[in-house]
Computed example of a mutant assay.
Amino acid sequence: MIRTAMTIAAAMMFAAPALAEDWDFVLVNNTGKPIKAVEISPGGAGTWVANKVEPEMKREGATGPGKRMTVHFDKGTGCKYDIKATFADDTSAVWSGINVCDNAYVTVNYANGTPTFKAS
Rank of each mutant, 00 (worst) to 15 (best):
N109D: 06
N51T: 06
M69C: 06
E60I: 06
D74M: 04
P34K: 07
P17R: 14
P42D: 13
V53A: 14
T107Q: 10
P115R: 00
D74S: 08
T47A: 01
A16Q: 06
K36T: 08
C79S: 07
G44N: 00
N109A: 07
D90H: 09
F87S: 05
V53H: 10
M69Q: 03
V100P: 08
R59T: 11
A45T: 02
W23F: 14
F14M: 07
Y81H: 13
T63P: 05
Y81L: 12
A104G: 01
R68V: 06
A18F: 00
G32V: 09
P17Q: 08
L27F: 03
Y81D: 11
A45R: 00
V106A: 01
K84A: 03
W23Q: 11
T86A: 04
V106H: 00
S41H: 13
K52M: 09
E54V: 15
K84I: 12
L27N: 09
A20S: 12
I2N: 06
T47K: 06
T7V: 08
R59I: 14
Y110P: 06
A18H: 03
A85V: 04
D89V: 14
G46M: 15
G44P: 09
T114Y: 12
G97K: 01
A37T: 13
A11F: 06
V106E: 03
I8T: 09
A9N: 02
I2H: 11
S92Q: 15
G64F: 13
I2K: 01
D24S: 15
I2Y: 06
T63V: 15
F117L: 04
R68M: 08
K80V: 10
A88Y: 07
I8C: 03
Y81W: 02
T114D: 00
A104C: 02
K33N: 03
G64M: 14
K33V: 09
V106C: 05
G113K: 10
M6W: 08
N51G: 15
T77H: 05
Y110M: 10
D89C: 11
T107H: 01
L19P: 05
T91S: 07
P115E: 00
A50D: 15
P115H: 15
M13Q: 09
A5E: 07
K52C: 10
T116Q: 08
V49Q: 11
D74T: 01
D74P: 08
G32Q: 12
W95M: 03
A88R: 08
N112P: 03
V49P: 15
E60H: 01
N103I: 02
W48N: 05
Y110E: 03
K118P: 04
E60T: 15
K58R: 15
M57H: 14
E39M: 13
S41F: 14
I98L: 11
A37P: 10
P65T: 04
K75V: 07
A93M: 04
M13T: 09
N109K: 14
I83C: 02
C101T: 11
E60V: 04
A119L: 11
L19V: 12
V94Y: 01
L27Q: 08
A85I: 12
I98P: 03
K36Y: 00
I40R: 10
T114V: 11
V49I: 04
A20W: 13
H72Q: 10
A88I: 01
T116Y: 01
M57Q: 14
L27T: 05
